[in-house]
């Protein structure tokens, strides 16, 4: 008998350990659910971590109102199957109540506005830990994240002054009003996620697979054509029907698509293995500047 786990089993075990640690150390945790593949995997792992008992925390979706309809359809079905409670924090509500102001112009996106809605919801619901699907391989600022990441009472991250994190001893102690962000998938890569989806036969929203869609190409990024996108008259010529799929899923205004014929998870894996561009290339939100992610994260972004 070989007493060795392969790397996917080790990552799975680590994520389950972190999820149980959250349930043990916090009073009011919540799992941030976007309908993207990483948060779907977290839902799947949370079920495994606590079965046959129910998942001991609700899920929270920060809804920009600019979703792919396929994501919302998937979300409602997934939540029903898991039997968890879903809380929706609405960016539209934040706009209506004057908490944030809608961006203007061609590049307008509700991506940044989500932070306010997220922090308001965490505050209102008194959550003390928000579990996120962030992975360190996604982006260089995320590479500096802890599993248990401390946030001050206004939800901010101080990357230069993080608690050391040693062995598997996670320190979730905090003062009243402070909170934590927890990242169980810290050590997973995009490839690990797809391999795990394949191994576990996890269903994912249809937009991850190749489909035909009306798109607009802007600054080299292919965006889904939608009423949420502010399109200048001179851009109309860039609208065309393309065969595409999502590599990451977010708000329709900033989720770039890739041209792809991949119709199965196996084909996606082949594509990812051969691809010479990072996942974030298709995220208009990250392309804003070299420090875009760090600046958003310090303010309390996912």
């Amino acid at each position: 008998m070989q007493y060795n786990l392969n790397h996917l089993q080790k990552l799975e075990s680590e994520a389950i350990y972190v999820l149980r640690e959250v349930a043990a150390q916090f009073e009011r945790p919540v799992l941030l659910f976007s309908g993207g593949k990483d948060s779907i995997i977290m839902g799947h792992l949370a079920k495994k971590a606590f079965q046959p008992a129910p998942i001991p925390f609700p899920f929270l979706h920060i809804d920009t109102g600019h979703n792919f309809p396929e994501t919302i359809e998937y979300r409602d079905d997934f939540i029903k199957k898991l039997g968890v409670r879903l809380i929706v924090g609405s960016v539209q509500h934040s706009i209506d109540t004057g908490r944030v102001r809608e961006e203007k112009g061609r590049y307008a996106s509700r991506n940044i506005l989500q932070t306010v809605t997220l922090l308001d919801t965490i505050h209102e619901q008194k959550y003390d830990a928000a579990i996120g699907g962030g992975r360190r391989d996604e982006e260089k600022t995320r590479a500096k994240e802890r599993f248990f990441s401390h946030r001050n009472e206004i939800g901010q991250w101080d990357p230069k002054n993080q608690r050391p994190e040693l062995w598997d001893l996670y320190n979730g102690r905090k003062h009243h009003g402070e909170q934590f962000r927890i990242f169980p998938l810290s050590n997973w890569t995009e490839m690990d996620v797809w391999q795990y989806i394949l191994k576990e036969q996890i269903s994912i929203p249809t937009i991850y697979f190749s489909h035909k869609r009306k798109c607009i190409t802007r600054d080299g990024v292919i965006l889904a054509y939608s009423p949420y996108l502010n399109i200048d008259p001179d851009e109309k010529k860039n609208i065309q029907t393309m065969t595409v799929r999502c590599r990451t899923v977010g708000d329709m205004t900033c989720t770039g698509l890739v041209e792809s014929a991949a119709k199965t998870v196996e084909e996606i894996i082949e594509e990812v293995a051969a691809c010479r561009f990072s996942e974030r290339i298709s995220r208009a939100d990250d392309l804003r500047s070299e420090n875009a992610m760090e600046d958003r994260k310090k303010e309390g972004y996912f």
């Binding site: 360190r136 260089k140 230069k160 993080q162 810290s186 050590n187 490839m191 070299e290 760090e294």
Partner: peptide
């Protein structure tokens, strides 16, 4: 490539642990 924080790039030094990932056909590395 590994200096992820603004301050690190500005000062040209690594301030905090950064985690990186790569794989070869037999092993995945953290």
């Amino acid at each position: 490539l590994t200096d992820g924080l603004r301050a690190e790039r500005e000062q040209g030094i690594t301030i905090d642990v950064a985690y990186r990932y790569f794989a070869t056909p037999n092993r995945k590395f953290i």
